[in-house]
Structure formats: C-alpha cells, structure tokens
C-alpha cells in the first residue's frame, strides 16, 4: 500500500504539472460548453465523456509537448524553473513520448467520434505546438494570436460536434476565446517582464511598451465580452442569462477603463482574474441554460 501511495504521489509531482491542469481544465470546460450549446442530447453521457476524454488527452498532450520544446526557456525563467523538466524530475525523452502519446490518443479518439470534430481538435494541437510554440514564440510578439486561435479550437470543436458543421455561433465562441487569450498572456508578460527578457522571448511589453500593452488588454477584454454576448444571443440563451452576461461585461469594461486611465499592477492582475472568471461563468451559463 505505501508503494502504491508513493507511485501515485510520484506520478502527481512528476507528470501532472506537465499538463497545466488549470489551463487544461478551463479549455476543457469551453469544449464541453461548446458541445452543449448545440442543445443536442446532453444527457448522452457516453458522448459527453468522450468529448471530455478526447479533449483532455489532446490538450494535455500538446501542453506536454510544448513543455518539452520550451524546457530551455523554462529553466531560465523564475516563474517556470520549478517545472518537472528544468528540475530534471523527468527526462526530455520521457516528456516527449508522453506528450506525443497523449496527443495521438486524443486526436485519434476525436477522429473516431467524428471526422470534423477530430480535424478541429487536430488543428488546435497543430496551431499550438507547430505554429505558436515551435515557429513563432521565439520570433514574434504577435505569436499570441496563434496561441489564441488554438485556444479557441476546443469550443469550436465541441460546437461543431453538436451541430454537425461549423456555424457562426461556434466561430464567435472561438473568437471570444481568441480575444480573451491576450488578457491572460499579456498580463503574465507584464508581470514577469524581466523573466521573459532573460529568456529572450519577444513580448508585447518589450516591443511596444507597457502602456500599449495595457491598452491592448483593455480592448481585447471588451471585445471578448462583446463576442461572448453575441454568441450567447446566437445560442438562444434565456434573457436572464443574457442580462447576467451583460452585467459581467460591464464589470470587465470598468476594469479595462481603470487599467487604461490609472494603470497599476494590482488592477492589471485584477482584470486578468476577472476575465478568467468571466469566461468560466459564461461557459457555465451556457451549460446551465441547456440543462
């Protein structure tokens, strides 16, 4: 029994952080919400579990491959130097094999469920690993756009699986995520500016300055809220939920104005947290509305 406990504890400390559980969980939630937004039979537990399983494998697989590729950067940054690869808790070969295996299983499962769903899941993985991480992250501050596109794929895939094709609602949901991603990434880029400088990663703050970055965050947050509200309307959500999305959007707008007019790191991080809460709440509302 103690051996089993030690093995589980080892597994948790070595491999679990490779999957970035919080980020994976949030993207997984968007995928499930996208699927349920189609108002298909959501109580078909087999399909719901398959969506959750395939997305979890594909997202955590791509995250693990990213960690494998970025292990040199992670080792140079204070924020990430504790991760399993820089601390040599696991070898790069182990991480790569795990990442590729999870990715292949996730995409394979998704393709087996539905070819369009599988294709979109694969596109998300390709954008994240090949275009964002390997090609652009070390070359351009604008790489976050590709990161955003890949972040929007789970919700688009879920929606496409539910309705059977790509519709404007799915595209708008993906756009909302794409516009939300800069709030997430750019806040980190400002908070850990020195870290990114040390690792030679081009970021918005290093290229365009903090003021322009704050303005970008403010604008993208507001646009994300507008896209989310438009998608919610397109889904046909009840007026009560639309009112609540409107209310939460006003909160986001207030914070966006606050960081533009009176910038401070505290309010900046507040907007980052609020935007995450907004996105999670919006996804939860989509699910609750259907149920």
């Amino acid at each position: 029994m103690p051996n089993l406990q030690t093995s589980i504890s080892n597994l948790k400390s070595k491999y679990w952080p490779l999957t970035k559980p919080l980020q994976t969980g949030l993207l997984l939630a968007t995928g499930l919400a996208g699927y349920m937004s189609a108002r298909c039979p959501v109580f078909n537990m087999g399909t719901v579990l398959s969506v959750a399983g395939s997305l979890f494998l594909a997202i955590s697989g791509s995250t693990t491959v990213n960690m494998w590729y970025d292990r040199d950067i992670d080792a140079r940054m204070n924020r990430t130097c504790w991760r399993p690869l820089p601390t040599r808790k696991i070898t790069p070969r182990e991480a790569l094999i795990l990442g590729l295996a999870l990715s292949a299983l996730g995409v394979g499962w998704a393709l087996a469920m539905d070819w369009l769903y599988g294709l979109i899941v694969f596109a998300g993985l390709y954008f994240d690993v090949a275009i964002y991480t390997i090609w652009l992250k070390r070359r351009s501050a604008w790489s976050i756009v590709c990161g955003g596109i890949s972040g929007g794929m789970p919700v688009l895939a879920g929606r496409a699986l539910g309705v059977g094709y790509i519709d404007w609602v799915g595209a708008t949901l993906a756009l909302a995520i794409l516009l939300w991603i800069p709030t997430h990434i750019l806040t980190f880029a400002m908070k850990y500016h020195a870290d990114y400088q040390k690792a030679n990663i081009p970021t918005f703050p290093s290229h365009y300055g903090f003021r322009a970055t704050r303005l970008t965050i403010a604008i993208s947050s507001v646009l994300a809220a507008i896209a989310m509200a438009a998608a919610a309307y397109g889904i046909g959500m009840a007026w009560g939920y639309l009112r609540l999305i409107g209310v939460l959007s006003v909160g986001m707008l207030s914070l966006a104005i606050a960081i533009s007019v009176r910038p401070s790191e505290r309010v900046n991080f507040g907007l980052f947290k609020y935007a995450s809460l907004f996105m999670l709440s919006a996804m939860l509302m989509i699910v609750l509305d259907v149920l």
Binding site: L248, G251, L255, G270, Y274, L277
Partner: peptide, 9 residues
C-alpha cells in the same frame, strides 16, 4: 448587477 460586480471586485 452593481451588487454582483462590487462583490466580485
């Protein structure tokens, strides 16, 4: 709405 936003902030 003000109560929601104020509490969250």
């Amino acid at each position: 709405g003000m109560l929601i936003v104020a509490s969250l902030l």
